[in-house]
Computed example of a mutant assay.
Amino acid sequence: MSFTVTVLPSGRSFKVERDERILAAAIRQGIGLPYGCKDGACGSCKSRLIDGRVIHGAHQASALSAAEEEAGFTLTCCAAAQTDVVIEARTVAGAGEFPVRKMPTRVISIERPAPDVAVIKMQLPAFDPLRYHAGQYVEFLLRDGLRRSYSMANAPHTHDDKPWIELHIRHMPGGKFTDQVFDTLKEKDILRMEGPFGSFFLREDSVKPMVLLASGTGFAPIKAIIEEMQFKGITRAAVLYWGCRSKADLYLHDWAVQAAAQMPQLRYIPVLSEPTPEDAWAGRIGFVHQAVMTDLPDLSGHQVYACGAPVMVESAHRDFVALCGLPEEEFLADSFTSEADKHRA
């Protein structure tokens, strides 16, 4: 048995099988709904249920509270339709443009720009190149059906006759995948992955000045977006805020400095929350989203791209909208939810 999902205000509709998650059906059919983690943790796919009935799978209260569900909101990533359904959600042009596919990938190189960060380059099949938007992510397919998600840190145009992607992976001690990356993964190892996924990428139809907000390895998709801006000659004003604990965590600081030097429309402002005495840091100190609010108290005319730890993304979303006048629809985010985050009550 299948049901019809209609999306307002676009009027697009698609079929969903009974007990199939609405978002999974949308991705399968190339319908561009907004989403991030696909696991009920980030809230990026939150939509309003206008008509019909759904059953929610497990999800975090921070992504969809009981009060929000009672008020008629739903998470399409963990909502299964039980009838024909009408939802209100922004469709994202380009989100379903490239087919999701599974493919093998080979490790080209592994670098450690910081003690707990690995920058890995992965070779893609030349006969079946991965097409994606800068800012999207792939999922590694592990044993027992487990998956781990990482954003591409290089823009698509950087591919040559030997296509490759760059990933920034932070070590999470005890993590099933990151322990492997830091302990046993080596050059020429082959992994399987699937992608591209996600609706976090540059909205090229906008001319608004941009805030590019990153914490930790949330810098990865922001880096890809900056590369794409430079390649396409996009001249919109942009300011990159990169928040980390200490100077060592700014693992591609020189790259960011160079990018800002090459792009007149781009400014770079690193912010450290816990600089060490050895850092001899003379730059900004504090929480990175608060640095944005200090510099740009009025965000009503801006567009924000935020990526990194859930606490940073959630705080920025809340404060930018409530205190700085940022329109809700202009906050675009990719929350880097770890497996621990996804299973936290």
Rank of each mutant, 00 (worst) to 15 (best):
L8H: 02
F14T: 05
K15R: 13
E17W: 04
D19E: 15
L23S: 04
G30P: 05
A41L: 08
C42D: 06
C42Y: 03
C45E: 01
S47W: 03
S47I: 08
I50G: 01
I50H: 07
Q60T: 10
L64E: 07
L64Y: 02
A67L: 09
A67T: 11
E70K: 14
A71Y: 04
T74E: 10
C78T: 14
A79G: 07
A79Q: 06
V86A: 06
V86H: 02
A89P: 00
T91N: 00
V92E: 02
V92T: 00
G96I: 03
R101Y: 07
K102D: 15
V107Y: 05
I108P: 00
S109K: 08
S109M: 00
E111R: 13
E111K: 12
R112V: 07
V117T: 09
F127T: 15
Y137F: 14
E139Q: 13
F140L: 06
L146R: 12
A153Q: 08
N154V: 11
P156L: 05
H157A: 08
T158V: 10
D161T: 13
W164L: 05
W164E: 13
I165F: 01
E166H: 01
H168C: 05
I169S: 02
R170T: 08
T184V: 11
K186Q: 15
E187Q: 12
D189L: 13
I190Q: 14
L191H: 02
R192T: 11
F197L: 04
M210P: 01
V211K: 02
V211M: 09
L212C: 05
L213T: 02
A214I: 07
T217L: 10
G218A: 05
F219P: 00
F219G: 00
F219L: 15
I222R: 11
E228A: 09
F231D: 14
K232P: 04
R236E: 13
A237H: 06
A237D: 09
C244P: 03
C244H: 01
S246K: 02
A248D: 11
A248M: 06
Y251G: 04
W255N: 07
Y268I: 06
P270G: 09
V271P: 03
T276A: 14
R284N: 12
R284M: 08
I285G: 05
G286V: 12
V288W: 00
V292I: 13
V304G: 03
V304A: 04
A306V: 12
G308D: 10
V311M: 07
M312C: 00
V313C: 14
E314R: 13
A316P: 07
V321Q: 14
A322P: 02
P327E: 15
E329R: 04
E330W: 09
L332I: 14
A333W: 10
S338Q: 08
H343L: 12
